[in-house]
């Protein structure tokens, strides 16, 4: 990264322009994807194939992440709970945190690192090895064939995985509660279903996860297609894509936390 003579202000300005242009390009890509979605003009067999592949490839990390992070929520809450002697509230506390925030957020970060990054690498490799040009030469629309199925595949994978990881994280939390502060599974379960957690908390998490899926899908497809410069270029794209996804996830999380009840 050349520091040379560019002043600090200049660099900030250049950064803002860069970001604006990337967002603009992503919006254009989104427009072209939507244009091919209504009516659905994309390869549905490809969608199913990607869905299966993405689910299988992300399953192990989602399981590990969910179990451990559920347990960590309890570990962090345990001292507070013990301080107030409110063991019965542990299920509620962990459930609230997992369903509204931790579950969707960590699952999205993991899927972004696994599925999103992989997708960028795939598309990027196809671009630098001129496979995408090859498709065009055969009059096959790369967006219909390559991009749109992946785009919806990622959104669906992330939404489904969030449901799955919510359940696993609660299970991990219950296990940790039993092991660390001796709260029975039953007590934990009562804490979750005791009425303090409402359906809207679950919905809050799921709506967010769909939005995260959207940003991961869009940025991973965009950076994949925008790859140039051989093998190092693919590496750069993957990096840019995961960074954009993570930034986007946090920004969306912020706005949705306020907007969605």
């Amino acid at each position: 990264m050349a520091l040379s003579n560019a002043s600090f202000v200049h660099r900030i300005g250049a950064g803002v322009v860069d970001l604006a242009s990337t967002v603009g390009q992503m919006m254009t890509l989104l427009g072209r994807i939507l244009q091919r979605s209504t009516p659905a003009r994309f390869d549905r067999r490809e969608l199913l194939r990607h869905l299966e592949f993405m689910a299988i490839e992300s399953l192990p990390i989602v399981v590990v992440t969910a179990l451990f992070s559920g347990a960590i929520v309890v570990i962090q809450a345990a001292p507070v709970v013990q301080r107030f002697g409110a063991e019965g509230l542990l299920g509620w506390g962990a459930g609230f945190g997992v369903l509204r925030e931790i579950g969707p957020l960590l699952t999205a970060l993991m899927i972004s690192g696994r599925v999103g990054a992989n997708n960028t690498a795939d598309l990027g490799t196809m671009v630098v090895t001129e496979q995408v040009d090859g498709l065009r030469a055969l009059a096959i629309d790369p967006l219909e064939y390559l991009v749109v199925p992946r785009f919806y595949g990622i959104i669906m994978t992330l939404s489904l995985m969030t449901v799955f990881s919510d359940l696993l994280a609660l299970f991990g939390a219950a296990l940790a509660g039993q092991a660390l502060i001796g709260l029975s599974m039953h007590g934990f379960y009562n804490g979750i279903t005791g009425g303090l957690i409402e359906f809207k908390d679950v919905a809050h998490g799921l709506i967010k996860s769909a939005a995260f899926g959207f940003i991961v899908a869009l940025s991973s497809c965009h950076f994949g297609l925008a790859t140039s410069g051989g093998a190092p270029g693919v590496g750069r794209s993957v990096k840019a894509s995961v960074v954009m996804s993570a930034g986007g996830i946090f920004a969306l999380d912020y706005f949705l936390s306020f907007v969605v009840p």
Binding site: T65, M110, R114, A117, T125, V238
Partner: peptide, 25 residues
């Protein structure tokens, strides 16, 4: 080749994140 670089980068993000979560626990 370039596919390998992509795979390595992906794997790095996943492996580092998993390591963090497991260490955290």
């Amino acid at each position: 080749g370039s596919a390998g670089v992509g795979r390595a980068t992906t794997a790095a993000v996943v492996l580092s994140s998993l390591a963090i979560i497991v260490l955290n626990f």
